[in-house]
C-alpha cells in the first residue's frame, strides 16, 4: 500500500503543482524519488510532528494540498491538537498519511502499534477517514482525497499486501465496495484485514455459507446505506478490523445499526480488545493473538452463525 501511495502521489504531483509532501524525518526508501523530483514541494521538518502539522496547515492556507507523512501514531497522536485546531477547524487541505496501521510494526512494540487511530480521528469534525484494504484501494484513495477538499486521514498498511481488486474497480470515498455477494452473513472489513476477510468468505463458502464481503475503506463518512441494505438482506453482520474494538469500524457500524429502523440482526465486532499488546511479534503473530487470522475469525463466527440458526 505504501508503494501504491507514493507512486500515485508522484504521478499526481507531476500534474498538480499544489501538491506538497511533508515528512517527519521518516520514509527511508519511500520518499526519495519524490524528494528528488519535486524538491520545492518536499519538506522534511525533522522529528517534530506538532510543527509538521502546523506548518502543513499554514501551507494549506496558502492553497497547497499538503500530505503529511509518518508512521504509526506519530502523525496523529503526537500532534492531535494541531490536527484538531489548525487543520480541521480551518478545513485546511491537509492529508495525514500514516504508514503501519494496526500491527504492521508489531515487533517494534506498543509505541508503534496503530490501534486507536481510527477511533480518535473519526471523532474530529471535517475529517475524512480512509483505510484502504489493498494496493488498488490505496491508489484510488490517494487520488480521491486530493479531489476532496479538506482534511483527510489516510491509514495505510505497510508493504506487500495482496491485491484483492481488479485495477478498474469502482472506488468512491464513502461508498463501500462489495467484494463478494452473499445472503447468509455480511462481513465488513476495513484496512489491511480485507485479504483475510476474503479468505474467510472463501472458507465459509466451502461450508455452504454464502458471505457478503464489504470493504469499508472509508470510515468517515460511513456508507450507512450499504450497512442498512446488509441488515435487510443478511441475518448477521460482523465487522473485522486490525484496530481497537472501541470506536473503530465496529463501533461505527453499531451506531448505524442501533439508530436504524431495520430488522434486528445478529452483530459482532472483531478486533483488538481494549488492551495494549505488551507482547510483541510480527504482524501475523499479533493478529493470531487476537484471533484476527482466517482460523481465528472462523472460530469467532461459529457462535454468530449458531445464533442465526437458532433465531431463524
Amino acid at each position: 500500500m505504501r508503494t501504491a501511495f507514493i507512486q500515485t502521489l508522484y504521478e499526481m504531483a507531476e500534474r498538480d503543482d499544489r501538491i506538497w509532501l511533508v515528512v517527519g524525518d521518516l520514509g527511508y526508501s519511500v520518499v526519495e524519488q519524490y524528494a528528488e523530483r519535486f524538491p520545492a514541494r518536499y519538506l522534511n521538518v525533522g522529528v517534530a510532528e506538532q510543527n509538521m502539522t502546523g506548518v502543513a496547515a499554514g501551507l494549506a492556507l496558502c492553497n497547497k494540498v499538503v500530505f503529511t507523512y509518518s508512521i504509526a501514531n506519530f502523525p496523529t497522536f503526537r500532534c492531535l491538537e494541531q490536527i484538531r485546531n489548525d487543520v480541521c477547524y480551518h478545513n485546511a487541505n491537509v492529508k495525514i498519511v500514516s504508514v503501519g496501521g494496526g500491527f504492521a510494526y508489531g515487533a517494534l512494540g506498543m509505541s508503534h502499534h496503530g490501534t486507536e487511530d481510527i477511533a480518535v480521528l473519526r471523532a474530529l469534525p471535517n475529517m475524512v477517514v480512509v483505510a484502504p484494504g489493498d494496493p488498488v484501494e490505496a491508489e484510488n484513495a490517494t487520488r480521491a482525497i486530493v479531489e476532496q477538499t479538506g482534511p483527510c486521514y489516510l491509514r495505510l498498511g505497510k508493504a506487500g499486501e495482496a491485491r484483492i481488486h481488479a485495477r478498474d474497480v469502482k472506488f468512491q470515498l464513502g461508498r463501500a465496495i462489495t467484494v463478494c455477494e452473499g445472503s447468509d452473513i455480511t462481513l465488513i472489513s476495513t484496512g489491511g484485514m480485507l485479504a483475510t476477510t476474503v479468505r474467510v468468505a472463501e472458507r465459509l463458502s466451502k461450508e455452504g455459507v454464502a458471505a457478503r464481503v464489504l470493504s469499508m475503506h472509508t470510515l468517515k463518512p460511513l456508507d450507512e446505506e450499504a450497512i442498512r441494505i446488509a441488515a435487510r438482506e443478511t441475518p448477521a453482520i460482523v465487522t473485522i478490523e486490525e484496530h481497537g474494538i472501541n470506536g473503530g469500524l465496529g463501533s461505527a457500524v453499531a451506531e448505524t445499526l442501533a439508530e436504524g429502523n431495520g430488522p434486528r440482526v445478529v452483530f459482532k465486532r472483531l478486533g483488538i480488545p481494549s488492551v495494549y499488546a505488551s507482547q510483541i511479534g510480527g504482524q501475523d503473530y499479533l493478529r493470531s493473538i487476537y484471533s484476527l487470522t482466517v482460523d481465528g475469525i472462523l472460530t469467532s463466527l461459529e457462535s454468530v452463525l449458531e445464533t442465526v440458526q437458532l433465531s431463524g
Binding site: 506548518v55 499554514g58 496558502c62
Partner: peptide, 14 residues
Amino acid sequence: GHGLSIAAGMALAG
C-alpha cells in the same frame, strides 16, 4: 504554541 508553526508554513509557501 500553535501560531508560529502555522505562520512558518505560510512564510515557506510565500
